[in-house]
Nucleic acid binder design. Structure first.
Lengths: 202, 202
DNA sequence: ACTCCTCGCTAGCAGCGCTAGAGACAGGAG
DNA sequence: CTCCTGTCTCTAGCGCTGCTAGCGAGGAGT
């Protein structure tokens, strides 16, 4: 060890760790692309292994199982959604417009990236959510919702609980519509009704 | 055929049809009980077949596949939910109380019968929903929500769309909480916030 | 140069939804 | 009563799933 090459950050150990991290990134990317192209039911460990040009067991040296891979994709998705919500919110003129814009951006994200959305909010995935241990990306996404809801909270309303309720409403609209249980036609109307009722006193 | 026994409703054909219908009922009941006891992932065609003491292919002579069995269970669930929502609604004093009571009854149903709820509203199941061809039980359940929401609709609001929005909010609260994405503690608070915002002008 | 140890591979397990084809058995005809 | 016919259920198996045991190659360290 004492005689190892001393070029900083270039030890063999470091190179291997870097390659491993690279491969892990490759797995997550492949899983995400496959899911977005054909849905999560098409993402099997065999296909994923073929996609990254390694054998199946390699996947399990990086992730505990398939759901852990989905969780990694979900975290990526949260970061992207947070960015889109932020853009929508900050571009709005007033707080009413901000809430409406965030609601629409949320629904648009779910519609444009259904597989990502499923990994984040629909599928069972062992991610800590409503706790301090939740990944930063996740808290960031919720924080964007909070930033849009808080300004329209009535006196004495808990902004956190109000945000959760607004989020749940958006989630319900999105999932029920995508599963064919709500007609797509009235989507905008429902979104407007929701925003209106949440900004009633403003 | 002309010489068949003429006792009404007692022909061999009739008996066989009756037995078939009985067995179909048995399948649906077994599926439901197994799902409620251990969740839908434990309901495999093999276990279900063992439960009804027939072989697997028998299931496929009654239903197109596993999802069709889940759909049958879902329809049963809709009937029960409709009844519970009706009870809650008609027991309330005023229309505000009715909306709150229905919301709570909805959440309580989802909490008490999670497997039933999943079959009805979470899992992909090929049932027509927002169309006239939807099963009566399903329309009945939605009708109960409508009966609770319609009285608090503001002038010019489409009661149907408003009901859909309220339903979606309840659905979101229920599913996000059950998947661990919302803390259980603030459940009542969120329900109250939802009801309050939907009855703001009343 | 030799040894050891890490790492990715082949092969396989148990279980899934679903189905083809064989065999038992009941109903009707002679 | 016997034979035939048609229905109905069973056994066996297909192709797939997530996941894992254990072997063999090849690089790292002495």
């Amino acid at each position: 060890m004492a005689s190892a090459a001393r070029i900083p950050g270039m030890s063999i150990q470091t190179r291997r760790e870097r390659e491993r991290a690279e491969r892990e990134r490759l797995i997550v990317t492949a899983a995400r692309e496959l899911a977005e192209a054909e849905g999560w039911e098409a993402v099997t460990t065999r296909r994923l292994a073929a996609e990254i040009e390694y054998s199946q067991p390699v996947l399990y040296s990086h992730f505990k199982g398939k759901t852990a891979i989905m969780a990694a994709v979900a975290v990526q998705g949260c970061a992207e959604m947070a960015a889109e919500l932020r853009t929508a919110r900050t571009a709005a003129k007033d707080r009413r417009g901000a809430l409406a814009a965030v609601g629409e951006a949320y629904a648009a994200f779910a519609h444009r990236r259904p597989a990502l959305y499923d990994a984040m909010f629909t599928h069972r995935v062992d991610l800590p959510f409503a706790t301090p241990e939740a990944p930063a990306e996740l808290q960031e996404a919720f924080g964007e919702l909070l930033a849009a809801v808080e300004p329209i909270a009535a006196e004495g309303d808990d902004p956190g609980a109000l945000t959760e309720t607004y989020w749940a409403a958006l989630h319900g609209l999105v999932t029920l519509m995508r599963s064919g249980r709500l007609p797509e036609g009235a989507h905008q109307q429902r979104l407007q009704l929701l925003t209106r009722h949440f900004t009633a006193g403003v």
